[in-house]
């Protein structure tokens, strides 16, 4: 009986030792996934995903508690990139990419209260107190943070009109 116990413990000890040495030789530190994920997210902390800003969303994604499609402004491309990074399978059905929307200000309603100015994560709104405000189209990400700040509901989300350069040939219906 003793031989059985002894041989196994010695064998285990020897192998354990060998593995300890090997792990020190082959050590490789991997950058935390969360930092990489955060670099991919838009970084506007718009909160549409329900997490406290992009770092919160990145942490949730790293833990796996958030689906890759949790970031609406990112759209399909970002969802695909996150899924590939985490090696998750991806179903794009939930993400109805009906096209980006941009905020537009109805100039006759704007009273120049500057409330929306402060809420915009990318400083896309131009204006001064008591002056009519307007929105820079290139800077607006369509996060709709400004819509509910406006007392006179002058801010409206409108779909981006398709231009000749941005038009995409429709996909044929598969037979």
């Amino acid at each position: 009986m003793l031989a059985a116990i002894l041989s196994l413990t010695i064998l285990g000890a020897l192998l354990g030792l060998a593995l300890g040495i090997a792990s020190r030789l082959l050590h490789v530190e991997t950058p935390p996934v969360q930092a990489e994920l955060e670099a991919m997210l838009p970084g506007t902390n718009c909160g549409q995903c329900g997490f406290p800003g992009c770092s919160g969303a990145a942490a949730a994604l790293a833990e796996g508690s958030a689906p890759p499609t949790c970031c609406p402004p990112g759209g399909k491309a970002l969802a695909a990139a996150i899924a590939e990074k985490l090696g998750l399978s991806l179903d794009l059905s939930s993400l109805t990419d009906e096209g980006p929307k941009l905020a537009t200000i109805a100039e006759d309603l704007c009273i120049g209260c500057c409330r929306c100015l402060k809420s915009c994560p990318t400083d896309a709104i131009l204006g001064a107190p008591k002056q009519i405000h307007n929105i820079l189209k290139e800077a607006c990400t369509g996060c709709a943070a400004c819509v509910d700040h406006c007392p006179t509901e002058a801010v409206v989300m409108q779909p981006v009109p398709v231009t000749l350069q941005h038009w995409v040939m429709p996909k044929p219906l598969a037979a």
């Binding site: 059985a4 041989s7 196994l8 060998a18 593995l19 792990s23 082959l26 490789v28």
Partner: peptide, 28 residues
């Protein structure tokens, strides 16, 4: 040592350590 009843146990021990080594090697 007539310990053939330990065969599966020792085999798994050896295989586990070889796999652990392979995993470290591939990770590197």
């Amino acid at each position: 040592l007539e310990l053939t009843f330990l065969r599966i146990l020792t085999f798994i021990l050896v295989i586990a350590s070889v796999v652990q080594f392979t995993e470290m090697f591939i990770k590197k």
